[in-house]
């Protein structure tokens, strides 16, 4: 079973990213599950979302305490929220940040990959400079680095949850996948 945890800010698209990813696993023929941290949504507040994928139906319903992957959608969150909490040994943390991986140090033993996803998003006119919409490009990076989900399924899943700027989103997804 693969377990992925997203950290983002309310309104940034972490929940939608988790749904797209779960759906892409589903299209790949896996069983999957996506759910948010349960609570009232408040714009800007740190939120988490979770994805599980497996070859058989997933029974467990608890939040993901020991993720294989952590996706941090805003670099700053990695400095204030314990994003690597419970991460499996040598788990991968993907951070949307203009800083190098060496800028971050965590107690847990994990691999860190940073990438300026905002830049890719803005290049494709996704969101604004203040709040770039990065859920698809960051999933491109995840797909490349984890090799657990196909880029084709992500392309197919995206329009179901992001019905606007479909082309731009898919272009950004592919560009990030290629860059990663």
């Amino acid at each position: 079973m693969i377990e992925i945890r997203f950290h983002g800010r309310g309104g940034q698209g972490a929940v939608i990213a988790s749904k797209i990813l779960a759906y892409a696993y589903f299209l790949d023929g896996k069983s999957s599950q996506a759910f948010p941290t349960f609570g009232a949504e408040r714009r800007g507040a740190p939120v988490a979302a979770f994805v599980r994928a497996d070859d058989k139906f997933i029974n467990v319903r608890s939040p993901i305490a020991n993720p294989d992957y952590v996706i941090v959608m805003a670099g700053k969150l990695a400095e204030t929220v314990d994003v690597t909490s419970g991460i499996k040994e040598n788990g991968l943390v993907i951070i949307n940040s203009d800083k190098p991986a060496s800028y971050y140090s965590f107690e847990e033993k994990c691999t860190i990959k940073t990438m300026n996803v905002n830049e890719i998003a803005l290049k494709h006119k996704l969101g604004s400079a203040i709040m770039p919409i990065i859920n698809l490009p960051i999933l491109g990076i995840f797909a490349k680095l984890s090799s657990s989900v196909s880029i084709e399924s992500l392309k197919k899943a995206a329009p179901k949850f992001v019905p606007v700027k479909v082309e731009e989103n898919i272009d950004a997804l592919v560009e990030a996948y290629d860059l990663a």
Binding site: A22, F26, S31, S32, Q33, A34, F35, P36, F38, R61
Partner: peptide
């Protein structure tokens, strides 16, 4: 159904 645990989970 369990609130959130079922209502808010995407599954097949």
């Amino acid at each position: 159904i369990d609130g959130f645990i079922l209502s808010h989970t995407l599954e097949e």
